[in-house]
Nucleic acid binder design. Structure first.
Length: 268
DNA sequence: CTGGTCAAC
DNA sequence: GTTGACCAG
């Protein structure tokens, strides 16, 4: 074997090792602080982000949230769901981590242990399966709320699957979701994580020429009723939460869309 | 899919 | 603290 051949083999081996190590580092990445120059997807959709009643908006690469320190959870989580985001990857569920981007300190997952409540994702892991990084990014405690298992695995799961159906059908929707955070809610854990009595989801479809909107308000208990029974106007969610959705829309259009509780433009 | 607990390392 | 097996809706 010539020296030249040996050197080229060594070069290839080194290249493979370097690439493998970079992949390893990416998989091992423990925090989700946004890297310089890597603008999060969600922030590019700033136009559709709701107002924050808590003045603490946090952007991650694949979703944004507004954290309520008082309730130790997000008042809303917002993200775009494209048809191309849906994948059949099956990543292993990692441990939940404290979201270091939340300045007031996000709650620890131990608050949920033996509480009788699920760590219910707000941005579902099932919506962020296009890469392991995107999937694992949903396992931050700023992205969960205490949910009864029957609710989470029941009607809420049905609603999340319906959103995926709409994302596939309409090729992209914008989703905002959270618990209705009120005063004097029951709490769990040493950090007093509030247990919402209702959860909401607001969905915007901007993919067709005709922009459309739909909102759901679901009591925190399982139900066998069809999902359309829980449709409400966006105005109703705003009145309950104090959050202003889509305020950048032209006023007349915003009022027309947000006052409607019709679901005739959405297929179930 | 949505999750949980437990034992073993 | 982590991992994998097993369970529930």
């Amino acid at each position: 074997m010539t020296k030249k051949k040996i050197l080229s083999i060594i070069a290839v081996v080194i290249l493979i090792a370097v690439l493998g190590y970079e992949q390893f580092l990416d998989n091992q990445k423990e925090d989700f602080i946004i890297e310089e120059g890597k603008k999060p997807k969600a922030a590019t959709n700033q136009y559709f982000l709701p107002t924050s009643t808590t003045n603490q908006v946090v952007h991650h690469q694949h979703y944004s949230l507004s954290y309520s320190e008082k309730h130790e959870q997000a008042e809303w989580v917002a993200y775009e769901l494209k048809a191309s985001d849906l994948s059949r990857n099956n990543f292993k569920r990692p441990y939940f981590e404290i979201d270091n981007a939340v300045k007031t300190k996000a709650a620890h997952w131990r608050n949920y242990k033996n509480s009788g409540y699920d760590r219910g994702h707000l941005c579902p892991a099932g919506d962020r399966k296009f890469t392991k990084t995107a999937h694992d990014e949903t396992f931050l405690t700023s992205n969960i709320s205490p949910q009864k298992h029957a609710f989470n695995a029941g009607i809420w799961n049905r609603l999340e699957q319906k959103v995926r159906y709409w994302a596939r059908k309409n090729d992209g929707v914008f989703v905002i979701t959270g618990g209705v955070l009120e005063n004097n809610l029951q709490t769990i854990g040493s950090e007093n994580v509030a247990v919402p009595k209702k959860f909401y989801k607001v969905i915007l479809d901007k993919t067709s020429s005709k922009i459309k909107m739909i909102a759901f308000l679901v009591p925190h208990k399982d139900s066998k009723l069809p999902l359309y029974k829980f449709v409400v106007s966006v105005n109703k969610i705003e009145a309950l939460t104090g959050i202003d959705f889509f305020k950048e829309l032209e006023d007349d259009l915003e009022e027309r869309l947000e006052s409607s509780s019709s679901y005739k433009n959405w297929s179930f």
